[in-house]
Amino acid sequence: MTYFRATDPFPLESADHTKLHEFYTRLAAGRLATTRCAGCRRLAWPPRAFCGECGADRFDWVDLSGEGTVHAFTVQETGLPAGFQGPRVFAIVKIDGLRVFSILVDADPAKVAIGSAVRLSPLRVADDPGGSARWLPAFRLA
């Protein structure tokens, strides 16, 4: 046995594990979605099952455009956690007026700039312990 057992770094995305499972279902189909509060109609990012503004716990799912621009970014070369490799482009993406934290996959760091156009590129990561596929909302240069 190895000395340490890394904890699972990815969220449990299925309906058995999270109220936000619809986000991941849509993501697997190539759609970026978030929640709109059924009480005060506030659009949230990331999606949430309780509204910190009005206190409601009812919400509707809304598809976002999937296309945005780079608001800020950095390239991490070294010092990444176990299981992750550099160089890795972390970015804040502006999309439909929201700020979304993500990574840019398959991006040449020299070609990334503030204002670069990006589009959703769902990233499949390790299956969950039950064998279900899992996805993260990653982006790539458009």
């Binding site: 770094p9 950095t74 991490q76 956690p81 972390f90 934290f101 990653a138």
Partner: peptide, 19 residues
């Protein structure tokens, strides 16, 4: 769920501020 799953730790956060 929304940050560390991408491999985020502190350095890129503060790098955004520096940039």
């Amino acid at each position: 769920e929304w940050e560390a799953s991408f491999g985020l730790t502190a350095p890129p956060c503060f790098a955004l501020a520096a940039q």
